[in-house]
Amino acid sequence: MENKTAKGIYGWKKWVIIAILSLLAGCINGFVGTGGGIVIVYMLLFLDSGGGDSTKNAFAKTLVAVIPMSFVAFLVYLNNGNVDTELMGRVFIPATLGGIVGACLMYKIDKKWLTMIFSSLVIYSGVTLITRAL
């Protein structure tokens, strides 16, 4: 039996929404090199709002979806000569350790204050990039 969400979206409508937003997420992730996860996480939170899916589970699912997406985009960028593999050689170990530390902390800390700080930083960075592009 199909799970009905709090928004009343179920059956084929749910799959159409997933298909459209997934295509959008893929295009964004390929075009900008990041950002597809934002679309997917809010889509999962919206669709699962009545199914008891926790925010943390939505983040974990998003990570699972974004990794194959990023891999495909990475292959295209690499093929076009747009990846600095030398830099990645230098940061491979800290990036691996950081990912593990962050994932472990996710289940242990209250992220509200951290999210507020990083939201401000993200907005500031976004404005800086827009200013730079104009």
């Binding site: 997934s22 295509l23 997420a25 893929g26 390929g30 900008v32 597809g36 194959p68």
Partner: peptide
């Protein structure tokens, strides 16, 4: 669904 769209975007 995302994979072909990602390749296109890239």
């Amino acid at each position: 669904t995302t994979l072909p769209a990602t390749a296109l975007g890239a």
